[in-house]
Design a binder for these strands. Structure first.
Lengths: 338, 338
DNA sequence: TTGTACGCGTTATCAC
DNA sequence: GTGATAACGCGTACAA
């Protein structure tokens, strides 16, 4: 029933707890025979050191925490797999928590992990999060933290991102090269860095090609499929149909696609579509969706290595921002026929 | 830098640690004024009780652990959201771990959570897991455990499942009603309960309708898209094309679809398709895929409530298996066009 | 080489 | 109503 503790082992072997402890923590001031015997009986009794007690003592836990906004889309899960890959090899356990895009839950998650004495955290901020004071304190107090994807430039810590501006620029330019002129952007919620960057990329691509860009062509949508659907329905109702749409992410693009198909519009003949942060659906949907793919797995491994370096560097550590490369996967949804 | 502890607060207020402790654990043997003052300065100092120490003392943590094989497909994430919903409300934190379909990692995960003194676990077994001895011991020692989806009938504990047999039966029968006669089944890996159940449903639907069923029409595929693709390619190479396929899950169905489309087969005209455990892709793919939808969110909340009941019931507790209802969502991929 | 004793941050049980 | 102290399970400096 109860967990077998170091005392039980010591009692059984008629030795002291410290001897047992020593047997488990390969220090060389112990005789091999005693060590082997202790390890053997310990195993037999089903004993293993209690990490909780160890954490309390050593103020660290060989655990790292990961907090993500959601894992309905495949993006975050794929990143997490990358993270795990690195840490499991190093003997760390990875605790995952989900904020559900809520600042409050996010904060609770962070505190829980902190109190569990995780040795570091990898976080992608929730949509709601405006106030990053808690993170600031964490960083200032010397806690190892790495951000990815949803980052804040108020926080001076290591980050892993892709160049949203650049790839939004490329994606838009691709539409321009295809000959589309009346291009709309379905933007993400205001305030988020990547929303702004993708929007700026969209604008500057037009600027480079000296194409006018009307105020109304940038619509604040959201990040969900329902957002894309809603905004598209509105445009259809207003008979304001663009040639092409660059959406802030795949779900909104797919939402728009859904609404367009429902009303009999052909894609890409009537309206072309480009998404972002390629989802598993992109190549499978009809028509296949052009999208900017992020190197999810690599984002995970990179973030993990940055955190590991930070944890293991007992001395000074300079936060660094790693910008990984994306890729524009061109598919049928954005190809001008003929 | 360092965490502020109960001692710091006590020292600052020139009172004893027990008084501070009392202030936090609403016992009535404390004066309101002292209590308020303590709470105020504690807040000011940024103190909150350290759950690690509390766990060590109380042998429980107000945390529950969740172990799933993967969360690339939306199924497990959606279940987890349901689980969180119940537990967050009750003041529990939910720690999530991913076994990656590996027995070893699964075991490590379980042990980590156990050593973190989680008050209970919700687990869906990995594909590889044959030996469930560790779980048996866990259950026998009185540890609260609930299984879902990937369960084992060797384990005497609460479970949440859907009736795989029944819904596989319905799905197959649907194909039969549509007029298909040469129906294949892409089965999952042997050994898994749901693999067997879905296979039996497939067989018995044929039996009920007195349809012959050849040995070769059941192909062991796997659970991945690549598995479906591979098996379908093989069939195509052998010029052995069925009228319809009932696949063990959506990814294999979609893999088959991919291969079929690549070789110019029309769906459902040439080959009809039905999946299982409806994924987000199913309604979006071309053609939309018929599939058995599982009530993911409800699976999560149900499992959570079962676990909660088990945790809070200090006395005797009878394990119960809850069988939730699925739903066959019929879409274009399985509709016989006259 | 091994044992004793202390401390990690709490709460519970005693005294006072 | 409040303070001292023992425990929770472990690692480790120090003593033996």
């Amino acid at each position: 029933m109860k967990h077998v503790t170091i005392k039980d082992v010591a009692r059984k072997l008629k030795c002291s707890v410290s001897t047992v402890s020593r047997a488990f923590n390969d220090k060389y001031d112990i005789r091999k025979e005693t060590r082997d015997q202790i390890l053997a009986t310990a195993k037999e009794m089903g004993y293993s050191p209690n990490p909780i007690a160890k954490s309390l003592l050593k103020q660290c836990s060989n655990q790292i925490g990961v907090v993500v906004p959601e894992f309905i889309n495949s993006f975050f899960p794929e990143v997490i797999i990358g993270i795990q890959e690195v840490f499991l090899k190093k003997g760390y356990q990875v605790l995952i928590m989900q904020s559900g895009e809520s600042t409050n839950t996010e904060l609770e998650n962070i505190k829980t992990l902190e109190k569990n004495m995780v040795d570091g955290m990898i976080v992608s901020l929730s949509l709601e999060t405006k106030n990053v004071d808690y993170f600031k304190n964490l960083i200032n107090s010397g806690f190892p933290l790495v951000l990815f994807n949803r980052v804040s430039n108020e926080l001076d810590t290591s980050k892993v991102v892709i160049d949203d501006y650049k790839w939004a620029f490329f994606a838009t330019e691709h539409l321009i090269y295809q000959g589309f002129r009346n291009i709309f952007h379905f933007a993400g919620p205001g305030g988020l860095m990547f929303t702004q960057n993708r929007r700026n990329g969209f604008v500057d691509a037009h600027r480079k090609h000296k194409l006018p860009i009307s105020e109304n062509s940038i619509m604040e949508a959201g990040l969900l499929m329902s957002d894309g659907e809603r905004v598209m329905e509105k445009l259809i109702a207003m008979h304001n149909i663009p040639d092409a749409i660059f959406a802030v992410n795949d779900p909104t693009a797919i939402g728009a696609m859904k609404a367009l198909k429902k009303h009999g519009f052909k894609i890409p003949d009537d309206v072309a579509l480009v998404g972002f942060t390629e989802s598993k659906l992109a190549p499978l949907i009809d028509p296949p969706l052009t999208s900017v793919a992020q190197p999810t797995h690599e984002i995970g491994t990179t973030a993990a290595r940055l955190l590991l370096d930070r944890i293991e560097s007992k001395g000074i550590f300079v936060p660094q921002t790693v910008v990984l490369n994306g890729r524009l996967n061109v598919r049928e949804s954005s190809m001008k026929l003929r």
